[in-house]
């Protein structure tokens, strides 16, 4: 018997929205170490969880079409000698796609299911499908699902040349088996 799945809360930063005040979430040092994408991801996630009244979700599942592309480019530039900067391990560490879900889990102390989907145009849909499937099966009760992407000039150029509209994403939703105060039901 599959359970119904509900969207309990959502938080989105749309392109053009002003950058939130991160001071309540990060120390100055933390904020400096973290790229804009990671800050937006942590901020929207914590807002959505707060709205849903959930401290630690059973699962953290993130979709990202291109991952932390700014860090990838910083590492590539150093690798190719495009700038004189040394190869920085932080850029490499924070260029793997799962660094977003990992950072959120570390901050929440979330030891449950954790996954990242990276499949152009299907990343967020897959993350939702994964969360919905596990809640429906009864494996988990709650999930934080996010969609996070940033753009760089080089990536935008590449996408435009393929006829794809470049888009940023910063969206966090909380799913659960609990219909109370739900925004909507997610159907299969």
């Amino acid at each position: 018997m599959m359970r119904s799945v509900y969207v309990n809360a959502r938080c989105e930063l749309k392109p053009g929205n002003p950058e939130p005040d991160y001071r309540s979430l990060f120390s100055v040092l933390e904020a400096r170490r973290m790229g804009r994408l990671l800050k937006r991801a942590v901020w929207t996630s914590s807002q959505a969880l707060e709205k849903a009244g959930i401290a630690v979700p059973d699962a953290v599942i993130i979709g990202t079409d291109f991952g932390c592309i700014e860090n990838s480019e910083s590492f590539l530039k150093a690798l190719k000698g495009i700038d004189d900067a040394p190869l920085r391990p932080t850029h490499f560490m924070q260029s793997t796609h799962n660094t977003i879900a990992s950072l959120i889990a570390i901050r929440l102390g979330a030891h449950g299911y954790n996954a990242t989907y990276s499949h152009r145009g299907r990343s967020f849909e897959s993350a939702l499908q994964d969360a919905r499937t596990q809640i429906a099966l009864g494996d988990i009760d709650t999930a934080l699902v996010g969609w996070f992407d940033e753009l760089t000039p080089a990536l935008s150029e590449s996408l435009l040349s393929q006829g794809i509209e470049p888009k940023e994403h910063a969206l966090a939703v909380v799913l659960s088996a609990n219909p109370e105060g739900a925004v909507c039901e997610l159907s299969f």
Binding site: G67, K77, S118, H119, G121, S123, A154, E157, S161
Partner: peptide, 11 residues
């Protein structure tokens, strides 16, 4: 690079 392969991404 600095140009991306059209097949850069995981998907």
């Amino acid at each position: 690079f600095p140009a991306y392969s059209r097949m850069h991404d995981c998907g």
